[in-house]
């Protein structure tokens, strides 16, 4: 098997090479028990993420990508190793990280404005202030006319925009995205990828984006990391050289395709190992 692109052969993206480390993960292990048996979901992952870097994580189904992300948020306890944001060790959920959930996880009885300001409300910010911040992000997500709508009245794509706006409104240091577009149809997903980059270009948050769509990972990220089959370790790493702001049309370029191929070969091999 020939791997077309190795990480060394790709020029690193210019924007954040010299940026300081934002997120430091050292030898992270996550185990979980089911029916009295212990499973290792994540086995010794080391990763250093620079400030403002967009990382996408791909891997075969059930490879522990989402478990890894939940451990970063602190919702799932880690059983070894260390996670640090700006040098501060993570011990549980905190305001320096925010998750964009796979299912939008909006409170159905709250309108868009009150959903987007949820994180700020939990942080104890007074109403006027949090509404001001929330309105700014609602505008960025293109939902200004829908401020008073309830989640049931919104399409799946719009719900995910609210989900993203809610995470960004909390102004976290690190944004964690757990397959946020996997429930959307292919067309909406493409649109949302473009929208996400538009919003992200405004805020430049350090982001970890878990997905099983390789084209999505290449289009969005500065760096793509492939996880092995469970227990997860890093099976491959690619720098994505496309300049920003990126337009959806770059997905058609041969360079984009070649990167997708190269990543796909690793993921497929790991998937086959998992199935064996």
């Amino acid at each position: 098997m020939t791997v077309i692109f190795q990480e060394q052969e790709v020029s690193p993206p210019g924007s954040c090479v010299d940026a300081p480390t934002k997120l430091q993960i050292r030898d992270l292990r996550v185990t979980f028990s089911s029916r009295g048996k212990n499973f290792v979901a994540v086995n010794g992952i080391d990763l250093e993420v620079r400030d403002g870097e967009f990382i996408a994580i791909v891997g075969p189904s059930g490879s522990g990508k989402s478990t890894f992300l939940m451990a970063l948020d602190g919702l799932t306890p880690s059983s070894g190793g260390e996670i640090a944001v700006d040098g501060k060790v993570v011990t549980g959920p905190g305001r320096d990280r925010a998750v964009v959930f796979q299912d939008s996880c909006l409170l159905p009885w709250r309108n868009v404005l009150d959903n987007v300001s949820f994180g700020l409300e939990m942080a104890g910010m007074p109403k006027g202030e949090r509404y001001e911040i929330a309105r700014e992000l609602i505008g960025l997500a293109g939902l200004t006319q829908f401020e008073t709508f309830h989640p049931k009245q919104l399409s799946g794509g719009m719900q995910q925009r609210v989900n993203i706006a809610r995470a960004l409104a909390a102004d976290p240091q690190v944004l964690l995205l757990d397959e946020p577009f996997s429930g959307l149809d292919a067309q909406t997903r493409e649109i949302m990828q473009g929208e996400l980059l538009k919003i992200w270009d405004e805020r430049k948050k350090t982001a970890i984006f878990v997905t099983h769509q390789i084209d999505e990972a290449v289009f969005l990220a500065d760096r793509v990391i492939a996880f092995s089959a469970r227990p997860a370790r890093i099976a491959g790493e690619w720098s994505i050289p496309f300049p920003r702001p990126r337009h959806l049309s770059i997905k058609q370029s041969p360079e984009h395709r070649a990167l997708e191929d190269s990543i796909w070969q690793v993921v497929r091999q790991e998937g086959a190992l998992a199935a064996a």
Partner: peptide, 24 residues
């Protein structure tokens, strides 16, 4: 899932009860 979401935003137990449990 909503409980998990609230926890992720650092909500205290009391906030979770008031903002998530009682309205549901």
């Amino acid at each position: 899932q909503l409980l998990r979401m609230a926890k992720s935003f650092g909500a205290s137990d009391r906030q979770i009860v008031c903002a998530v449990v009682l309205p549901s």
